[in-house]
Nucleic acid binder design. Structure first.
Lengths: 351, 351
DNA sequence: TTGAAAGCGCTAACAA
DNA sequence: TTGTTAGCGCTTTCAA
């Protein structure tokens, strides 16, 4: 059972080795190992035993070439450091465990050129489908995707036109809804804190939706602060300190993600700034992380795992089908007011 | 340049299509696209243009089968939700961007059976190497790895015998060192809080090292608390509340990771428990996250990115070489005392 | 139920 | 510098 390497052969095992050990044709071994076609129970057992005792692992490269079928699905995200993406990947993996498809992950670091390179690399393995974050891609990347003739699912965003199918939320709407909730609660001097990354299109869209809804209410973002890189909890503290020292009369801070929002919250609490009495706070993402903070931060769930699951389901469904999906699944994130966004008496606006 | 799909051909493009378009042999096209062999500048340009205008993407399945070379490296980790692993993957990806190797990630969810399945799946693509977290694997998994005849790098742990090479830290030593530091600082009534997961061998080893060093000083862990699943920040709070209500005289809490440690810290601060005066705290991992907390938590850096980089370097070095590495790189994590582990007057031990 | 032949798309090795 | 031939390890197809 484990004597497979008595003589450490350099050559990896092939079907032929198993075929000889079991005394049947390669074809029969192949059938047994794939569980396809009719094989007598006797041969089946014989083959399985031979294969196992040799420690044979089928060569999928040869198999895929011969069958013109690849059970791989390319999954491309901008980053793993941001908690959001591992959660999406988790949702994808969950669904693919139930079907004969295997996700292969690629990371672009928010770089369009890198995205193109990763895409080219992955498509060269002729995957059965591709799931890719965002709707913004270079012209070349879009060409690659279109030419691949496989189901393409663009995820996490719904503001734009997908190449094929899309599953996501509208970040513009998310921004608008949060602005509306803040204004509705009576806050007026509102600051924005976010990432500087010009290539994080979803953060940008949230900001656009936010300012749009503010404008509709006759308001403007009173002050803003941007950051890049580093620990976002610490950055949240620093940015909050900076914006409040510059504009101490702000009564609300909207953060482009929960991590910097949490940092802001900690800064306020440390410095005796009453939340949400003196100042209200809100973030974005609905990270579980928040559950442990001193106050539950107002936020909006980005539907991460659900997006992953839906995307994976779409791929599984359309693999093999010639009718390309063209589906659009737009999820609606739930607003969570938490404990940092509370209605305040109108008088507060000008004490 | 983008007219590649005038007639949406179902058949993907092959070398032959490019060969015909460019008016040269398939072999020449192949050489140009791989940048191998001598090709005249004229043909080179011609081929490149034809290839690009058609939108051709080489079929690596066929290429790998023919050349018996696969530029893939299998990378297997227990989880992505734990910040630690994305950081390791980042280190790996960083190095592989500089060589013609591509990492392919697999996730096991700390499940040995799943590990075996993922391994089998990945090895069936005949990768050039494998990087896998931990030294503990099922007998079958070990057999698979040994038979693969490729460099195997086991990472993140150094307490045990690797199949081939290993890169990691000694978690037993990490536990011992933290215990020594705590005792040295004058703490005596020490509690432990950790994960219940019996399959997180590294957490277990830290605990073992910790109790061992305690015993050597004539001490025992005064109380302990275990958890599973969920937000670890919140869990840290809950566990801390629980252990302190049960054993209010504890003067130190050692957490098996920084996230629950951070939760514990927040709990103490919220409840007016002086840290580190009344009680000291320490975690493990050295997450950047900590930088934003009200107090800098004592911790130990797990050398995550460095482990990833070293492992990737080992693979790149040994790919192609017949002499299998058998290297052992043991990194030494740095103890960071932070602000929650401070020397206290001896009198304190029995006020 | 089993086997034999052909070929998937590419590259190694050799020839021109 | 370019082309030809054979074959990588498997599966499809068809025959027995």
């Amino acid at each position: 059972m484990s004597d497979s390497r008595n003589a450490k052969s350099a050559r990896p095992l092939t079907l032929r080795d198993v075929s000889e050990a079991a005394g049947v044709s390669e074809m029969t071994v192949s059938r047994v190992l794939r569980g396809s076609g009719d094989v007598s129970e006797a041969t089946r057992t014989k083959v399985l035993e031979a294969s196992k005792s040799l420690g044979y692992v089928p060569n999928r490269i040869a198999g895929s070439l011969a069958s013109q079928k690849v059970n791989l699905v390319a999954v491309i995200v901008p980053s793993l450091g941001n908690l959001v993406f591992p959660e999406v990947l988790g949702g994808i993996a969950e669904v693919f465990e139930t079907v004969p498809l295997q996700p292969v992950f690629g990371v672009t670091n928010y770089d369009p050129e890198r995205e193109e390179a990763v895409l080219y690399e992955m498509l060269s393995w002729r995957p059965s489908g591709a799931i890719i974050a965002g709707l913004e891609h270079s012209e070349a990347s879009r060409l690659l995707l279109r030419n691949a003739e496989i189901p393409i699912i663009e995820i996490m965003d719904a503001d734009g036109e997908p190449i094929d199918s899309m599953v996501g939320i509208s970040h513009r709407r998310a921004g608008r809804r949060m602005a509306a909730a803040i204004i509705e609660a009576g806050y007026r001097r509102i600051g924005f804190l976010g990432t500087k990354m010009p290539l994080d299109h979803r953060a940008r869209k949230r900001f656009e939706g936010f300012t749009e809804a503010m404008a509709k209410a006759g308001l403007e973002v009173a002050d803003q602060e941007f950051y890049e890189g580093g620990s976002s909890l610490l950055k949240g503290r620093e940015m909050t300190a900076a914006i409040l020292s510059r504009a101490p009369d702000l009564d609300f801070l909207y953060y482009s993600n929960d991590m910097i929002g949490a940092g802001g919250l900690l800064h306020c609490l440390d410095n005796g700034i009453e939340v949400p009495g003196r100042i209200g706070l809100a973030g974005f993402n609905g990270l579980d992380l928040l559950d442990g903070l001193p106050r539950k931060l107002a936020t909006m769930d980005a539907c991460r795992a659900e997006i992953g699951r839906e995307a994976a389901r779409l791929v599984s469904r359309s693999v093999g089908q010639d009718s390309s999906g063209g589906e659009r699944i737009i999820l609606k994130p739930k607003l969570q007011l938490g404990e940092t966004l509370k209605r305040r008496p109108p008088a507060w606006t000008d004490p």
